[in-house]
Write a protein that binds this DNA or RNA. Sequence first.
DNA 1: CAGGATCCGTCTTGATACTG
DNA 2: CAGTATCAAGACGGATCCTG
Lengths: 154, 154
Amino acid sequence: MICCVKDCTRGTILSDTNIPVRTMAPRPEGCRAVAETLGRIGDKWTVMVVGSLAQGPMRYNHILRTVEGISQRMLTLTLKGLEQDGLVTRTMYPTIPPRVDYELTELGRLLIAPLQSLHDWATEHRPAMLAARAAFAEKESEAASQRARFTTPK
Amino acid sequence: MICCVKDCTRGTILSDTNIPVRTMAPRPEGCRAVAETLGRIGDKWTVMVVGSLAQGPMRYNHILRTVEGISQRMLTLTLKGLEQDGLVTRTMYPTIPPRVDYELTELGRLLIAPLQSLHDWATEHRPAMLAARAAFAEKESEAASQRARFTTPK
DNA sequence: CAGGATCCGTCTTGATACTG
DNA sequence: CAGTATCAAGACGGATCCTG
């Protein structure tokens, strides 16, 4: 159960028509956790930074070059968030010029597996999603032209 | 490899100091996909709605009551997005009053597993994350008071 | 019942310039 | 090199009211 819902009931679940549907093992204790976690890693850059750091420890500018399109500001903020949540360690060498290494913690490395499964789903099913989106767009414009035919008949 | 990076190189990866670090099997073909997928499902309500629908087909108002805190507007938008991407089907019965059922498609049901693994990670490691956040906040305020001691000595 | 339309504040992101 | 500071723009989400 991945829900964050009110009625994480146990046992058989009844639909509105009282017909038993799929049964799952609910885990109420983690319902809120999923949403919060996704709120944390679901932003625009976090997964890419984590994915980048999955290769190993990396310096600030190296991540900056690796994660295409990220700005200094966003990288700094993302790394700070990850460090704050204990997913990344920041090691500063007070040399001149300064050098800062970032590395995934054990916690951060454990996150790689779930992200990998999400990655696999994404790569495998993205064509289907794109197709669905295209089909949906077509139906939309079709319906729009239908409406237009009756609302603006000149 | 879950990255969305430029140098999804193959084989051994070298750090800035030319010391070989962890080696992973990169899959450049899916780099962008992860980011896009998370952009899709990483919003505030999508996972909760999917989690709710994982129980089985459900009517609009039932989801509304199940997903605590969601507004009509957000539920409608979320469901429309999911339908557009082929993760959810919308079945309308033109009765009075109207009745609309939402149900996960096969694609949507396949998404449950990755979300489940993310859920498991979240429930298992959330205490650690909260602890890390608390520790970080403490260090922050500590450093802040240090600074204050020297910048505003009255 | 299941939305659609509107308004409006907030949060996020990006661009740019500056610094120890 | 590795950031910080500031500003502007746009996306996002919530509240409210309306409807077939």
